[in-house]
Protein backbone atom coordinates (compact mmCIF):
# COMPACT_ATOMS: atom_id res chain seq x y z
CA UNK A 1 0.00 0.00 0.00
CA UNK A 2 1.34 3.50 -0.72
CA UNK A 3 3.54 5.28 1.77
CA UNK A 4 3.67 9.03 2.34
CA UNK A 5 6.03 11.28 4.23
CA UNK A 6 4.19 14.08 6.01
CA UNK A 7 6.68 16.87 6.57
CA UNK A 8 5.83 19.44 9.23
CA UNK A 9 6.94 22.83 7.92
CA UNK A 10 6.02 24.81 11.01
CA UNK A 11 5.95 28.46 9.90
CA UNK A 12 6.90 27.70 6.29
CA UNK A 13 4.89 26.63 3.30
CA UNK A 14 3.04 28.29 0.44
CA UNK A 15 1.33 31.08 2.43
CA UNK A 16 2.04 31.02 6.16
CA UNK A 17 -1.09 31.46 8.24
CA UNK A 18 -1.20 32.85 11.76
CA UNK A 19 2.35 33.35 12.94
CA UNK A 20 2.57 31.55 16.26
CA UNK A 21 6.25 32.40 16.71
CA UNK A 22 8.76 29.96 18.15
CA UNK A 23 7.36 27.53 20.70
CA UNK A 24 9.75 28.87 23.31
CA UNK A 25 7.60 32.01 23.37
CA UNK A 26 4.32 30.14 24.05
CA UNK A 27 2.63 29.68 27.40
CA UNK A 28 3.78 26.40 28.98
CA UNK A 29 0.30 24.89 28.84
CA UNK A 30 0.13 25.65 25.09
CA UNK A 31 3.43 23.84 24.57
CA UNK A 32 2.13 20.87 26.55
CA UNK A 33 -1.13 20.82 24.62
CA UNK A 34 0.78 20.89 21.33
CA UNK A 35 3.15 18.09 22.28
CA UNK A 36 0.26 16.01 23.65
CA UNK A 37 -1.48 16.42 20.30
CA UNK A 38 1.61 15.09 18.47
CA UNK A 39 1.72 12.05 20.74
CA UNK A 40 -2.00 11.50 20.29
CA UNK A 41 -1.66 11.60 16.51
CA UNK A 42 1.11 9.01 16.71
CA UNK A 43 -1.08 6.81 18.91
CA UNK A 44 -4.03 7.20 16.55
CA UNK A 45 -1.90 6.15 13.59
CA UNK A 46 -0.61 3.14 15.53
CA UNK A 47 -4.16 2.18 16.43
CA UNK A 48 -5.31 2.46 12.83
CA UNK A 49 -2.42 0.33 11.58
CA UNK A 50 -0.99 3.13 9.41
CA UNK A 51 2.06 4.15 11.44
CA UNK A 52 5.61 3.66 10.19
CA UNK A 53 7.63 6.38 11.85
CA UNK A 54 7.43 9.80 13.51
CA UNK A 55 10.38 11.97 14.42
CA UNK A 56 11.00 15.49 15.65
CA UNK A 57 14.05 17.37 14.41
CA UNK A 58 16.26 19.81 16.25
CA UNK A 59 15.62 23.28 14.80
CA UNK A 60 19.20 23.89 13.77
CA UNK A 61 21.75 21.85 11.89
CA UNK A 62 24.86 22.36 9.85
CA UNK A 63 25.67 21.91 6.18
CA UNK A 64 28.54 19.74 5.02
CA UNK A 65 29.89 18.77 1.61
CA UNK A 66 32.78 16.93 -0.01
CA UNK A 67 35.73 19.31 -0.02
CA UNK A 68 37.40 17.94 -3.16
CA UNK A 69 40.29 15.49 -3.54
CA UNK A 70 42.78 15.65 -0.68
CA UNK A 71 40.79 18.40 1.06
CA UNK A 72 38.84 18.34 4.30
CA UNK A 73 35.02 18.35 4.12
CA UNK A 74 33.52 21.82 3.96
CA UNK A 75 31.05 22.67 6.70
CA UNK A 76 28.83 25.67 7.14
CA UNK A 77 26.60 26.76 9.99
CA UNK A 78 25.07 25.95 12.37
CA UNK A 79 22.57 28.60 11.41
CA UNK A 80 20.15 30.21 13.84
CA UNK A 81 16.63 28.91 13.62
CA UNK A 82 15.37 29.66 10.13
CA UNK A 83 11.87 30.94 9.44
CA UNK A 84 11.32 27.95 7.17
CA UNK A 85 12.21 24.85 9.13
CA UNK A 86 11.22 21.24 9.01
CA UNK A 87 10.12 20.47 12.54
CA UNK A 88 9.60 16.74 12.03
CA UNK A 89 7.63 14.16 10.12
CA UNK A 90 5.17 11.32 10.13
CA UNK A 91 5.73 8.39 7.77
CA UNK A 92 2.49 6.52 7.08
CA UNK A 93 1.31 3.51 5.08
CA UNK A 94 -2.25 4.10 3.87
CA UNK A 95 -4.87 2.87 1.43
CA UNK A 96 -4.93 6.01 -0.70
CA UNK A 97 -3.52 9.47 -1.29
CA UNK A 98 -6.82 10.89 -0.06
CA UNK A 99 -6.24 9.26 3.32
CA UNK A 100 -2.69 10.68 3.50
CA UNK A 101 -4.09 14.18 2.88
CA UNK A 102 -6.72 13.64 5.54
CA UNK A 103 -4.06 12.69 8.09
CA UNK A 104 -1.96 15.69 7.08
CA UNK A 105 -4.88 18.08 7.61
CA UNK A 106 -5.43 16.52 11.01
CA UNK A 107 -1.77 17.04 11.89
CA UNK A 108 -2.11 20.66 10.80
CA UNK A 109 -4.99 21.21 13.22
CA UNK A 110 -2.80 20.60 16.30
CA UNK A 111 -3.13 23.45 18.83
CA UNK A 112 -0.57 26.26 18.81
CA UNK A 113 -0.24 29.47 20.78
CA UNK A 114 -3.33 30.21 22.84
CA UNK A 115 -4.73 26.78 21.94
CA UNK A 116 -5.66 28.03 18.45
CA UNK A 117 -5.13 25.51 15.65
CA UNK A 118 -1.65 25.90 14.21
CA UNK A 119 -2.84 25.73 10.56
CA UNK A 120 0.66 24.45 9.90
CA UNK A 121 1.49 23.56 6.30
CA UNK A 122 2.17 19.85 5.98
CA UNK A 123 4.04 18.75 2.88
CA UNK A 124 2.81 15.36 1.63
CA UNK A 125 5.44 13.47 -0.38
CA UNK A 126 4.81 10.03 -1.90
CA UNK A 127 7.51 7.48 -1.13
CA UNK A 128 8.70 5.67 -4.26
CA UNK A 129 8.29 1.91 -4.27
CA UNK A 130 11.07 -0.33 -5.59
CA UNK A 131 9.66 -1.76 -8.80
CA UNK A 132 6.35 -1.62 -10.64
CA UNK A 133 4.07 -4.62 -10.53
CA UNK A 134 3.98 -5.24 -14.26
CA UNK A 135 6.26 -4.66 -17.21
CA UNK A 136 3.61 -4.51 -19.87
CA UNK A 137 1.56 -1.73 -21.30
Amino acid sequence: MPKYLLLKHYNGGPAPIGNHGPMTGWAPEDVTAHLDAQRRIGDELRASGEFIDAQALAPTGSYVRFGGPDAAPVTDGPFPEAKELIAGWYLVDVDSEARALEIAAHVSSAPGRGGRPLYEWIEVRPVLEDVPATDQA
Binding site: G49, F51, I52
Partner: peptide, 13 residues
Amino acid sequence: LVPEATMAQRISR
Protein backbone atom coordinates in the same frame (compact mmCIF):
# COMPACT_ATOMS: atom_id res chain seq x y z
CA LEU B 1 7.82 -2.69 4.69
CA VAL B 2 5.93 -1.52 7.77
CA PRO B 3 6.68 -2.14 11.47
CA GLU B 4 5.44 -5.46 12.84
CA ALA B 5 3.35 -3.65 15.48
CA THR B 6 1.56 -1.70 12.74
CA MET B 7 0.72 -4.85 10.82
CA ALA B 8 -0.42 -6.59 14.03
CA GLN B 9 -2.73 -3.67 14.69
CA ARG B 10 -4.06 -3.69 11.13
CA ILE B 11 -4.87 -7.40 11.41
CA SER B 12 -6.49 -7.09 14.80
CA ARG B 13 -8.64 -4.18 13.61
